[in-house]
Design a protein around this nucleic acid. Structure first.
Lengths: 208, 208
DNA sequence: TGTACATCAGTGAACGCGCGTTCACTGATGTAC
DNA sequence: TGTACATCAGTGAACGCGCGTTCACTGATGTAC
């Protein structure tokens, strides 16, 4: 898609440069075309300005390439959420995490789609387990739920189920708004800020 | 996939029989393979026991075929929700709609995926508009929200936004649980009933 | 009642396409002597 | 300092595949005479 610009071949130790370029190009194509299918070996090679076989020097497989793209997105989400979860008040922290999560999804809809709305079979082995529960993003949410329950201000019907279930429920709620806005952008949504504010008020009231 | 069984050619006026068989086969493939991509003209023709070109006597296009499959799912969802929304108490009705909705999604995950988790570009023209807001399913939800607000028991922060926003929010919540359970079946979910019960209690508390 | 004919559901072969992947290769770069 | 060589990033051509779609066709069916 992007016309190939002239590129110099990488020097001896700099093989990783192309690797980075490949990943960046793949992400770019994903965002531009809004289609996972458009991220083909050939399209990526073309965007980088290189022939298809040279991709295979850096990734064993198309799947492994996509896996890495996906992993980068998870890392990015982890990063922004970890940076966000800094308040002492767990309820404020939940609120902040939720806002940042929704924003992440709407800013990178195609990444979000692959991460949380697609079948995971294109991703190697224990991808799900590693990416979901093990991530610092979910870890932060879980820990924040624990702290919220510890305050005693969480409704018993929720608190009694434990922090894990509470975290899954909160995640479900926030994911619901995010993914539905991505999947059905032409639904009768109100202004984004109004929507998020009302939604979080909604969620908060459900907890406390 | 399904080995072709011997089939008799349809009689003069019975051309619609094959049409029905095609749609049924397409739905079956969708459920069996859990993959939208697997529903190819060739695979459907094979399952029905017919050659690919004969599909074109009944559908102008692959897209139109998928569109019809999708339309059937929407009709089915409309039907079960309309059948469900019968209580006088709007809050009980909301609860019942939500339960039926989640069940529909988990019973037909691949249908749900196409309906609410995919890009809509494979579907013709004003599909979204027609399918979303115009459907009796969403109509029922909206109307039930109106009735709920009319009771005066909905929290002002929600009620003041109006029934449309309230409906979108409730939908977001229920969609969140449904779609996340479909997309991440190996996440640490509790027992389904516990999950749904707690979730709906959660939602209800957010409203009132 | 028997025959010629129009209809039209379904066939068989083929098209062009983009895909993931492979293979033997080229030729610039850094290193050893 | 100069030359031969090993390394290895990237190439060019080709493979087999499944796809959506097209085309001219076949042959069973119902109807008109």
């Amino acid at each position: 898609l992007t016309p190939a610009t002239a590129r110099k071949r990488a020097a001896r130790g700099e093989g990783d440069l192309l690797r980075e370029e490949i990943l960046t190009a793949a992400e770019q194509i994903l965002e531009d075309t809004a289609s996972e299918d458009a991220v083909s070996i050939r399209a990526v090679a073309d965007a980088v300005g290189v022939t298809p076989p040279s991709i295979y020097r850096h990734f064993t497989d198309k799947n492994h390439m996509l896996f890495e793209v996906c992993g980068r997105s998870f890392s990015e989400l982890d990063r922004v959420i970890t940076e966000t979860a800094v308040s002492d008040d767990p309820f404020e922290t939940l609120d902040a995490i939720a806002r940042v999560y929704v924003r992440f999804g709407l800013d990178h809809p195609e990444h979000y789609r692959i991460m949380f709305m697609s079948r995971g079979d294109a991703t190697p082995e224990d991808f799900d387990e590693h990416m979901l529960v093990g991530t610092s993003a979910f870890g932060r949410l879980f820990e924040t739920c624990e702290r919220a329950i510890a305050t005693g201000r969480v409704r018993p019907a929720v608190a009694d189920r434990g922090a894990l279930i509470m975290a899954m429920l909160v995640w479900s709620q926030v994911h619901g708004l995010t993914s539905l806005m991505i999947a059905k952008p032409s639904a009768p949504w109100a202004d984004l800020d109004v929507m998020v504010d009302t939604f979080l008020d909604f969620v908060r009231a459900g907890i406390t």
